[in-house]
Each structure stands twice: as C-alpha cells, then as structure tokens.
C-alpha cells in the first residue's frame, strides 16, 4: 500500500531545560514514516528513542524543525488540538501497558472513544469487537490485575486500535513480556500492519528488530547508519 506518508519529520530537535542546564535529547532528526511502514527503532539507552516516539505521536512538540502528522503541522497546534490529533491518528502501546487499574478490559479499550464523544453503547460494542480481534473476548469484564502481562498488553493494543488510527507507536511493547508472549504480541502488530496500519516500534531485542521491514539506529540523539 502506498500513499502520502503518515509522518514526516524534518530536522526535528528536542532540548530539555533542567535547572538551567539544557539537555539535547534529539539533534536534527529527519524521518519519514510511510503509510504502510513497519519500522523498528533501536539504539542504546538514553539515545533518544522514546523522545522521538513522543514527537511522532504528537505527545510532545519539537524544540525546532518541522513535524507533519497526517499532513498537519504539529508546531502550529495547541495542546487541545494535539490531543484531538492523537485521538484521531495515533495509537500508543507502552512498555508498562498503562491500563486504568479499576476499570474493566472493555472500558479500558473504550477509553479513547470517550474523548471522541462516541455514545456509551457504541463504545462498548466497538471495544468488544476490538477485544475479540486481539483474542480476549472472554476477558472483557476483567480488571488488569486479573490478567497476565501478555493479556494486558493485548488489551492495550486493542485500546490503541479502537479509534482506527493510521499509525501505531509501540515503545518497547515486549520489554515486560517473556519471549513466547512477546512473539504473540508481535504477530498481532504484524497482522495489523498487513491491514494497512503503519507500525513503529522501539526495541532492544535484535530478533524483534529484524522482523521489521526496516530499522533505524539511534545514538546520542541522532539517526546513525545501521
């Protein structure tokens, strides 16, 4: 599948100010995520992978450079508009799942639809369908602490998908899982990619990275030749 790229980053930099000291986490990175991309980002700890992911997902704003997500220039958006952009085009999967503890799997999956103003009944239907898609229909009424890590991560993936995003960003999605469970989660991400969702994942695992269509390596806030 081809078409206009999902994300285009041009010379984006991100500098943190900490007690008057500035830390440059990202130096002039340029990267294009195609609409059907399956991209792995690798690199040592502290090299700026998560920082880049936050930018690609419109969770954060570059200090300089231009960043187009779904054709929109993030640097011109206010926090409310960025939230809307995330809701409409991005799905996040985190290393530590980040599910709401007191909430059932179904309502966790439905959460992004709340902020889209989808009525409750439709939300529940769509969430149920998405749980089915990740093979967890039987877990709909369970809370996170009643599920295994692998199940929780699949709930998180269902949540990321429920809005029908064009890009799935996964920061070490298998980092907290054993390898068998990790394989299952990766298989799920790959099947989504084959359905036309761009997938960008960060990993420390060579084998995981090798499964992606392409890899980029980061060091000291820059993309370096792999």
């Amino acid at each position: 599948m081809t078409g206009s790229p999902a994300i285009v980053a041009t010379d984006v930099a991100r500098t943190y100010e900490l007690d008057g000291v500035s830390v440059t986490a990202l130096k002039a990175v340029s990267l294009t995520v195609e609409a059907d991309d399956y991209l792995a980002i690798v690199g040592t700890s502290g090299s700026g992978k998560s920082t880049l992911m936050h930018l690609l997902g419109a969770l954060d704003r570059p200090t300089s450079g231009t960043l187009l997500i779904g054709g929109r220039d993030v640097t011109t958006l206010d926090p409310g508009e960025m939230a809307k952009l995330r809701n409409e085009t991005i799905g996040f999967v985190f290393q530590s799942f980040h599910l709401l503890a007191r909430t059932t799997a179904q309502d966790n999956v439905a959460l992004p639809l709340v902020y889209r103003g989808v009525p409750r009944r439709e939300r529940r239907e769509r969430a149920a369908a998405m749980l089915e898609r990740v093979g967890l229909a039987h877990r709909a009424g369970h809370r996170p602490n009643q599920m295994t890590g692998g199940e929780q991560q699949r709930v998180a993936i269902a949540r990321a998908l429920v809005t029908g995003p064009s890009v799935l960003l996964a920061d070490e999605p298998t980092g907290n899982l054993d390898s068998a469970t990790g394989q299952a989660v990766l298989a799920l991400l790959e099947s989504l990619n084959s359905e036309g969702v761009a997938v960008v994942l960060v990993t420390h695992d060579k084998d995981v990275a090798a499964r992606a269509h392409r890899q980029i390596r980061m060091r000291d806030g820059e993309i370096v030749p792999a």
Partner: peptide, 16 residues
C-alpha cells in the same frame, strides 16, 4: 498523574 497522562495520550484535551 499517570492516569491523567494516559488519558491525554489517548486524546483527552486539557479541558476534558
């Protein structure tokens, strides 16, 4: 705080 961060990540605006 973490819950707030997650809600924002999935699309909650500051207003929400």
């Amino acid at each position: 705080t973490k819950e707030i961060g997650l809600r924002k990540a999935v699309g909650a605006r500051p207003r929400d």
